[in-house]
């Protein structure tokens, strides 16, 4: 694959919940190894955009391609597509009845059909990447919020996705636990993972993002490198938003 062909290619995406139109024509291309940061006020459609990208929400119209596969096509094997797209949730959503390793290996065994031994060795590798190999036997309720989120990241990584979508990965964490999750994300970026991150961690965006996208009211209002968007945005709306964020 040439370096310029996008991994994720979203065109003219529309999504409504009943009468409420949440996405009003989104176009977004994410290239390999790119880290795209999505910011914007709550209710602007950021999470919905991410959730459409692996069809946890069904868009009303538009197209979404992952590595040139149209994931909205009628006959597509959505479960095969989904394991190529990692997803990390705000509320971790670890399975409470399985230990960390069990969380990471479930899909390896059931979706990819690997044996327990294969799955566990891959699972340990994934947990090692997030620095939690020694917690493999711990259950979610024995882990801190930051550790739980890192296990959730390992769960996504174990399937060797081509892209990982982060839906506010640090919003549910206590401030002192945010750093550990961000440093895992930073290492991921350095290893060349393609990522789309919805988050309010502006400092992380400034230092790690290739491109920042500002969404407002279901549209992409402006996008560009972090320096430009944070320091000299075209839209007064963005300045206003950045001021309210920094006020905290």
């Amino acid at each position: 694959m040439s370096d310029s062909a996008p991994i994720l290619d979203v065109r003219a995406l529309y999504k409504s919940f009943g009468h409420l139109e949440v996405l009003k024509g989104i176009d977004l291309q994410v290239k390999p190894r790119e880290l795209v940061f999505v910011i914007g006020p709550s209710g602007s459609g950021k999470s919905t955009l991410l959730r459409c990208c692996n069809r946890l929400e069904e868009p009303n119209s538009g197209s979404i391609r992952i590595e040139d596969i149209d994931i909205l096509a009628p006959g597509v094997d959505i479960n095969a597509v989904r394991r190529r797209i990692g997803m990390v949730f705000q509320s971790f959503n670890l399975y409470p009845h399985l230990n960390a390793l069990g969380n990471v290996t479930l899909a390896l065994r059931k979706v990819e059909g690997k044996t327990r031994e294969e799955a566990e060795s891959l699972g340990i590798q994934a947990l090692t990447r997030v620095g939690l190999a020694e917690k493999a036997k711990s259950f979610p309720n024995e882990l801190s919020g930051g550790q739980q989120q890192r296990v959730a990241i390992a769960r996504a990584l174990a399937l060797e996705p081509v892209i990982v979508l982060f839906d506010e990965p640090t919003s549910a964490l206590d401030p002192e636990l945010v750093g550990s999750v961000l440093s895992v994300m930073r290492e991921l970026r350095e290893s060349g993972m393609t990522m789309v991150v919805v988050s309010h961690e502006m400092r992380f965006a400034q230092s790690a993002a290739d491109r920042v996208i500002f969404m407002d009211d279901g549209r992409i209002l402006e996008q560009g490198p972090p320096e430009q968007l944070f320091n000299a945005p075209d839209h007064p709306r963005i300045q206003e938003f950045l001021r309210t964020i920094q006020a905290h």
Partner: peptide, 12 residues
Amino acid sequence: GQWEAARSTGLT
């Protein structure tokens, strides 16, 4: 969220 996490990893 449990359904979503599982479906997002490709489980049917």
